[in-house]
């Protein structure tokens, strides 16, 4: 087994577990490959045979609609056989361990596992465990990583902004509990974005977050000034019960993205959100549906990016 958690001994992508430490060449290759798939998704016949005869298992230990669906569509467009397993109501509740489940599915000749789990490190654990013929894609593990979401965000930024080296990007919201934010920060850093900001109250920031290479702001007025890209995070309602925040109302007042606050950013700034959105909590409807929002295109790009990741993994 390779020492690197997600590269094989030739330095190629064996698994996609995190954007942290992902070589910039591989990252760019994924984005370029996704670009070539954009045409496919717009054709009448939307299938290409790159994954014909391969089995992709969607292992979702946590509920998800958007991510699971886009993975399923991506795999089907590549002509793979897709098996969806809603593990939240399956063997895990019958007491089977995570790795036993994986072993059983491996015995059914799986080629690829797409894993969503509420525990940080679950995808790493599975990747360490499976044989060299199986590829693991992390579709979100706990608070740790959600690399395909970050990659589709990078794809979106590149579509609208071209050069990463001149950008000022702000990530706004619950950084502490966000696997999306962590993966975005690593991907942006790798692609050479010179200034990444995180904007949140202190209760929603992890310790020493600045060590990830970000500038910390607690105030939207200062944090949004002259920003090119705004990446909004979803706010979970549990945060009120765990004493992270007093109320969604107060959160919206200080950290919700309103048209007025958006004026602080550059006039050509784009607004992104990984979904699902809480309108009136982290984002105002007027902004979400406004001309600077690229939230819907993001979803479409998600299919092309996931096709790219799967086809690259299958080729290695």
């Amino acid at each position: 087994m390779s020492i690197h958690p997600q590269l094989n001994k030739n330095g190629e992508l064996q698994h996609l577990l995190t954007t942290e430490g992902l070589p910039v060449a591989i990252l760019r290759h994924i984005l370029d490959t996704a670009e070539s798939f954009i045409g496919v998704t717009e054709r009448d016949v939307k299938k290409i045979p790159l994954l014909r005869g391969k089995s992709v298992f969607n292992l979702f230990f946590e509920p998800s609609t958007r991510t699971r669906t886009t993975f399923e569509i991506a795999a089907k467009r590549l002509s793979a056989d897709v098996i969806n397993l809603n593990m939240a109501v399956s063997s895990q509740t019958k007491g089977e361990t995570l790795l036993d489940t994986v072993d059983n599915l491996s015995a059914m000749h799986a080629d690829m596992f797409v894993v969503r789990h509420n525990q940080s490190g679950a995808a790493h654990l599975i990747a360490r465990h499976v044989g060299p013929e199986i590829h693991v894609i992390n579709a979100g593990d706990g608070w740790h990583a959600h690399p395909t979401q970050a990659l589709l965000d990078m794809f979106t930024i590149r579509r609208y902004k071209q050069d990463f080296h001149t950008l000022r990007v702000a990530i706004i919201g619950d950084i502490l509990h966000s696997r999306v934010a962590r993966s975005q920060i690593h991907a942006l850093t790798t692609l050479g974005v010179p200034e990444i900001r995180v904007i949140a109250p202190k209760t929603l920031l992890p310790a020493r977050v600045e060590r990830l290479g970000v500038h910390v702001y607690h105030n939207m007025t200062q944090g949004l000034k002259d920003v090119d890209v705004l990446m909004i995070l979803r706010l979970q309602h549990e945060r009120m019960e765990s004493a992270h925040l007093p109320s969604t109302e107060e959160y919206f007042k200080y950290y919700g993205l309103t048209p007025g606050k958006l004026l602080l950013a550059r006039s050509d700034a784009i607004v992104m959100h990984p979904g699902p959105m809480n309108r009136g909590v982290e984002i105002d409807s007027e902004v979400a549906d406004g001309s600077q929002s690229v939230i819907l295109p993001q979803v479409g790009f998600g299919i092309a990016v996931r096709m790219a990741v799967m086809s690259i993994l299958a080729g290695n």
Partner: peptide
Amino acid sequence: HDGEVATRLGLPAIP
């Protein structure tokens, strides 16, 4: 530990 590693790995931390 509530430090850089827990932040990177997304692990619940003990201050």
